[in-house]
Design a protein around this nucleic acid. Structure first.
Lengths: 138, 138
DNA sequence: TACTTATATAAGTCAACACTAATTTGCCTG
DNA sequence: CAGGCAAATTAGTGTTGACTTATATAAGTA
């Protein structure tokens, strides 16, 4: 049947979340905030921290590349990666529509404080259900 | 074997990306920006747009709930969902370390414009690879 | 009470994805 | 050129997670 006709909401930049879903990839990006790094350098750190192989890291680098999170530059046999902020900016833009939810909350809090109110929260807490699914490790 | 011993980098707010990796869940959140909605209302829209079943939507709602993206309130048999911005705020905070990459770029661009330069971009274009897998629709 | 509506859960299936080991490609140096 | 790094690719495997259908729970209504 397949409907889902690609409505508006940020045609691009949407996959960005998929990419960032992986902790290894987030870590790689963080390493790159220090500036341009050779694949090998990144790989060394990540292999050590996560205990995965070089090809695994290379594959993550590929995903980041393919989705525009990094740019690469050749230096002899080495590949120098840097952050390309574009997809991150897309996420930032996507977040925009939610910012009011916390600024609102801050404003309300501010008001309360000014008025010296000691509001009793209506205990809207979500039910104690807290099954945090699979992934046995932890 | 499971190494990965939970290093530092943002202990919380990290699963958030996993949750937002799914377009259905992003859509649900967007629907909730209009305000508190009954599960059924959300479900109707999403079922129509994505062509998935009610339980599927319910499961997505569960994920959003379990990860703190929504709060729920009972109204008779209905469940009224609202946005809880906390995890989104976490993401916003995580983005912070990357903002300089685009503000920087803007500054540089500004400088260039002022100087009347017509910089030639180093054609760092990423390869045309564009595999976009899952959810055949689109 | 029985019937319906609203929503969640259970159990099972299938495809995607993060790995691994093996190999390839390319550059650099003796 | 041979050999050795640096990095990417290939092929195969196990686990996860997004779905399905069927069913359960619970509240409203006749």
């Amino acid at each position: 049947m397949l409907t889902y006709i690609s409505i508006g909401w940020h045609p691009e930049g949407v996959h960005a979340f998929d990419v960032l879903g992986d902790p290894v990839r987030r870590r790689i990006l963080e390493l790159l905030t220090a500036g341009e790094q050779a694949a090998g350098a990144v790989s060394a750190v990540v292999q050590d921290e996560f205990g995965i192989s070089q090809p695994a890291v290379s594959q993550h680098l590929r995903v980041l590349r393919d989705h525009g999170f990094t740019t690469v530059r050749a230096d002899g046999a080495r590949r120098l990666y840097s952050v390309d902020p574009e997809p991150l900016q897309d996420i930032d833009a996507w977040l925009e529509q939610y910012r009011r939810f916390w600024t609102q909350r801050l404003d309300a809090l501010g008001t309360e404080l000014v008025r010296g109110r000691r509001a009793r929260r209506s205990s809207s807490g979500r039910p104690p259900r807290n099954r945090k699914p699979r992934r046995e490790g932890e």
